[in-house]
């Protein structure tokens, strides 16, 4: 009956995943956005006041083009092979950052009090 236990573990993992996904998707937006390369902060924005703009963020030979429009942020273009960050669309959940693993780029919501070096306020 060992496989029964394994089957139960499988089902439990699946259920856990479903619940976790729902929790992540329901996390609300915040107004402060941070763009980072690994742990180094490149940009901080307040989305409610930031003007519409596009930023080209180079990484070696590669680059990501980040667009800020109507108080939302996304990766518009990327030179990485998989384009996952582009396909993720606009940043929606505070629990789920947009990441470009090949270029080590992370775009996520942050708490406002940490955004001391905001460049566009």
């Amino acid at each position: 009956m060992k496989h029964r236990i394994v089957l139960t573990v499988c089902i439990a993992l699946f259920a856990l995943g479903l619940i976790g996904s729902a929790v992540v998707l329901l996390m609300p937006k915040k107004s402060t956005v941070v763009i980072r390369r690994d742990s180094e902060v490149l940009y901080t924005f307040n989305l409610s006041t930031a003007p519409d703009q596009t930023l080209v963020i180079p990484y070696g030979d590669s680059s990501n083009t980040v667009e800020i429009r109507d108080g939302a942020v996304r990766v518009k273009e990327a030179e990485c092979p998989d384009k996952t960050c582009v396909n993720m669309g606009w940043l929606r959940s505070s629990a789920m950052p947009i990441v470009c693993l090949p270029n080590h780029l992370i775009i996520e919501f942050a708490d406002a009090d940490r955004g001391v070096d905001a460049i566009s306020e």
Binding site: D38, S39, M96, P97, V99, E108
Partner: peptide, 9 residues
């Protein structure tokens, strides 16, 4: 690699 706990989401 990225040192970003947010990825856990």
């Amino acid at each position: 690699v990225t040192q970003t706990p947010g990825l856990l989401a």
